[in-house]
Design a protein around this nucleic acid. Structure first.
Lengths: 336, 336
DNA sequence: ATGAAAGCGCTAACAG
DNA sequence: CTGTTAGCGCTTTCAT
């Protein structure tokens, strides 16, 4: 790289490095004329400060981390989009880390952050994460952390979620209204906040409508897509199979469609489906999919904004609050 | 963060910082016993080296940048997945930057990389990018750059692409074989390598099959989704409308479906469609979409691997080669 | 095999 | 207002 540095600038101008440094950062203790001269020369020589020198000295990196279970998923892609939008605006850089639903990886990643590599962390937990020691460890070192979507209640910081309970309730109620007699719930990762809340909303709707619930109505799918296909297939082959399904994870809606096709079950004739999903193609599926559409982009933005609010005031931690952005039930043909 | 540092370790052990540093990096000039003691204490005290101090000193960041036009897109999400897989393996960190199809943003981003913030760059060009000055500038400063998908021929480095010409040719030929009389091409960003090559493959297939081509067969859509809806709608309202369509961008397939629905055109009855797409839902669209499926994950992996090959040998630049990973034509119902 | 010391490029006290 | 200086934490000659 062999770039021009602040010392070269200073020499060229006959000034001290200290003065140049302050002039570049537009310090009030530097005269307008000097600032001008410094900044002009900097531009002319295409001076680009070394971010690592600056980070080392100032103990801040102007970088945040986004830790995700996966990325090939409309929800998380959109969330990143929202996060990036506010990061750019604040002049921050964004590091991406994927846990691939593994707690071990999540721990290793958060551990690394103790180095000071990032100034703050946005995280959506892995499906395996139940304990929170690794998070508390990092938090204890004053690292601002904001959760979104897959949160963990017992860390006192900002969480950005959607109304998981209510939207699952609404979805279930909608299926019941459509005359479904046996409504099943497809989930993954039973330890996850979203799974639990959505499940509770679902159960509450059942009981509010005097529907019996038994544990076989909840199908917990493995993380491996192949295996979850089999799991769902088995569920739909039972002779007392569901005639209504809540797919609480984007991917499971697609799998359910494929299973229905193979078993020659008609949607919505034999089975009605509503899925938590941000698929841009939901409207043109066969049949079009009724979705609980999460405000993914807005959730990303809100989470990032909360983080930067803390970052702005030196060493303040994010407020212990829960920001809830509601999802939308978009009725389409899969519910008849 | 107030972490333990190398000096504290040294003091605790009664060694010099130099020795500790070498022991931690497993240098051959340190005795086995000392290494052991150092590494044990480091683990015990949870010593985590400051990456910025190290970066400053060694002039390398163990970080790469991925520059993308957008992220809410199956192709790019999958590519990131591939990139991340190899970055993790190599112990590198991944910074994400989005150009949102803007050349101005792309320039600003690459400019920043002159700071040495990253050791290498993976980039897929913005739709507006025609000139390559900003890329050459960075390249001239010895920054390893690897292109993928949306490449630029005139920088002598590694490019990872799919067989754009051939797959567009195949898709067009397939539509012709299905008896389409007038095959249209939907594209975006006419300056882009992928647009040009796909267009050429399309044209060649037409001429090889004695189909007349006139310029109105190519519909260039604006980047704004709303506007491209109108553009496509206008094209399909013409009375000499297409009965076959190649959608060369993922998003345009979906838009075309929506337009067909509004205009009550049957797919594949009135119009047959094949789309360049990595949508996981392609098989369950209404009707299921015949796709040219790009090897997105593999392309990401290949691009990252090429970059790391250069990074390994200090200051070597990526080879000037073009890695072509073929796409697959997956025939489904949208082509009848 | 270990230590001493210089310095990566920048910032922040403190002096003047 | 500008300059001087002392590091941030780590790596790397060069001595010993």
């Amino acid at each position: 790289m062999s770039n021009i540095n602040i010392r070269a600038l200073a020499k060229e101008l006959g000034l001290s490095v200290g003065t140049v440094s302050k002039a570049l950062r537009d310090s009030h203790e530097i005269s307008a004329g000097t600032k001008q001269k410094v900044q002009d020369l900097a531009r002319k020589l295409n001076y680009i400060p070394n971010p690592y020198a600056s980070s080392l000295r100032r103990r801040k990196s102007k970088t945040i981390a986004v830790v995700l279970p996966e990325i090939a998923n409309s929800f998380f892609s959109l969330a990143i989009d929202g996060i990036e939008a506010v990061a750019v605006e604040k002049g921050y850089h964004v590091l991406i880390y994927l846990t691939h639903e593994s707690l071990l990886k999540e721990e290793a990643i958060l551990q690394d952050f103790q180095s000071g590599r990032v100034d703050g962390v946005l995280i959506s937990l892995s499906g395996q994460t139940t304990g929170t020691g690794h998070i508390r460890d990092l938090y204890a070192k004053d690292m601002p952390i904001v959760f979104f979507d897959r949160v963990c209640e017992d860390v006192e910081t900002t969480k950005v979620i959607t109304d998981d309970f209510e939207s699952a309730y609404k979805a279930t109620q909608y299926l019941i209204g459509k005359n479904c007699k046996r409504v099943g719930f497809l989930g993954m990762s039973p330890g996850l906040s979203i799974t639990i809340k959505r499940m509770e909303g679902y159960k509450k709707a059942l009981s509010d409508h005097q529907y019996a619930f038994n544990s076989s109505d909840i199908i917990l799918c493995p993380e491996d897509p192949e295996k979850s296909y089999t799991t769902i297939r088995n569920a739909l082959e039972r002779k007392d199979r569901f005639d209504g399904i809540i797919a609480s994870i984007e991917r499971l809606s697609i799998t359910t469609y494929l299973v229905c096709r193979e078993l020659q079950l008609s949607i919505p004739g034999d089975v009605k489906i509503v899925g938590f999903s941000n698929l841009s193609s939901a409207a043109i599926l066969n049949p079009s999919l009724t979705t609980i559409t999460q405000p993914a982009f807005e959730m990303g933005k809100a989470a990032a904004s909360a983080l930067f609010k803390a970052l702005k005031r030196e060493s303040a931690m994010p407020a212990n609050e829960c920001i809830i952005i509601p999802s939308t039930l978009m009725v389409r043909d899969s519910t008849g």
